[in-house]
Nucleic acid binder design. Structure first.
Lengths: 215, 215
DNA sequence: AGTAAAAAACAATCGTGTCTGTTTTTTTTA
DNA sequence: TAAAAAAAACAGACACGATTGTTTTTTACT
């Protein structure tokens, strides 16, 4: 049987005060999880093997397997960590924007920055792998859906002018989403062409201005 | 030393007349290559192992290794085959369009069909894998570049009205390219939403109409 | 008979999961 | 409070299965 999962272990250790052991445990877990993300970025999902992760983390594979029951558990924890990090970073970027005279430009730029962030390729890598790995899909999909949800809600809050026409908002978001992600993914196989991309970026901004409901 | 590559073998066999043996050889090679593509579509690039390909092709692994020196050779042949097939299918779709009163709608639809074709996910799968597999990248990149080139040239030929403003053409193509590919890739992790997609599709068409240089 | 195709067998490597043993920390108990 | 017991962190080694490339054997064709 599986006895208790690693997460449960942490929880029981955390109750009352945080002992040194629990601290160390959390610390190495974090190190391992970050190493896993780093490996996915460097070597791809298939290339992220347990010995490689352990090596990247600077711990023995035995220690790693003590904290996580199997490879999937490591990947799962990495996804969770990645999701939170991604969301936090995006929210922080949004929060840094001027609330009063918020321009479409700023929102667009924030999303662009998000999509060109190194961690985005990790998410994309996982998304592609999940197509043929149902187990992975089961872990990844909720995070993916949650992110889009959050993104939509944030946009709804931030751009009150659009609330009168949610269809337009949805269209605008789809346009931004697909286009920018398309550009980001193109970078994988084709060297970036700043000039062309900024032209596209500017055009997209024009489109949004035109789509914006008039008060 | 690698002695002669499988391709060379075929060539020597093909010179003079096409013997039945050479025919069979070409036939099984094709079967293997198609099986490889099928496997990439089904199990992903990492999951496409030599036993699986051979099994899918219905030949022994030994026979397969007789025709291809190693796994890379199979993949390489598959990419070449895929590229030609993709290009041919796209050209055929373009050729089927009405030459006289060609609408943007038709061109857009053709590209959309191309991007939702099952073989497109194979190409995308390979593109992602090539990020962390430089050997693969070396094979894939030329095909990728050639396809984009061909696409651009075709568009240039098909829409003479745009020739007066190549900047607009380039922008339009970037917009179409990134958006549609973005939608296609979204399908990997998120179930399609026909309504939203057609709305986006129609909007894209409007954008193109507006971008079109006036005569 | 001789050559190519196909199949099978082989050796080497690699990744995974499990198991055993050691050290350190925490908890219990005297 | 100090010693003993329990639990957790960690390291290394093992066995199993899978994949790859090579080599050997069998089959089919000309």
């Amino acid at each position: 049987m599986n006895s208790k999962t690693s997460t449960e272990k942490v929880k029981t250790a955390q109750r009352k005060e945080i002992g040194r052991q629990a601290q160390k445990s959390a610390s190495t877990r974090k190190i391992i999880v970050e190493a896993a993300l780093s490996c996915i970025a460097k070597y791809g999902y298939a290339g992220t093997t347990t010995p490689i992760i352990a090596n990247e983390a600077g711990v023995s594979r035995g220690a790693m397997m003590h904290h996580f029951n199997n490879r999937s558990a490591v990947i799962g924890a990495a996804i969770e960590y990645l999701h939170e990090k991604r969301l936090r970073a995006f929210k922080r970027a949004i929060a840094a924007l001027p609330k009063d005279k918020l321009q479409l430009h700023d929102g667009l730029k924030a999303y662009w920055k998000h999509v060109t962030h190194p961690l985005y390729v990790v998410f994309h890598e996982l998304a592609v792998a999940s197509r043929t790995d149902k187990g992975l899909a089961k872990i990844l999909q909720p995070a993916q859906a949650a992110f889009y949800d959050e993104w939509y809600n944030l946009s709804y809050d931030l751009f009150p002018q659009w609330r009168s026409n949610t269809d337009a908002l949805e269209l605008a978001m789809d346009l931004v989403n697909t286009t920018l992600e398309g550009v980001a993914i193109r970078h994988l196989s084709i060297p970036e062409d700043i000039e062309r991309e900024t032209r596209l970026f500017n055009y997209l901004e024009e489109c949004l201005s035109a789509l914006k409901p008039k008060l």
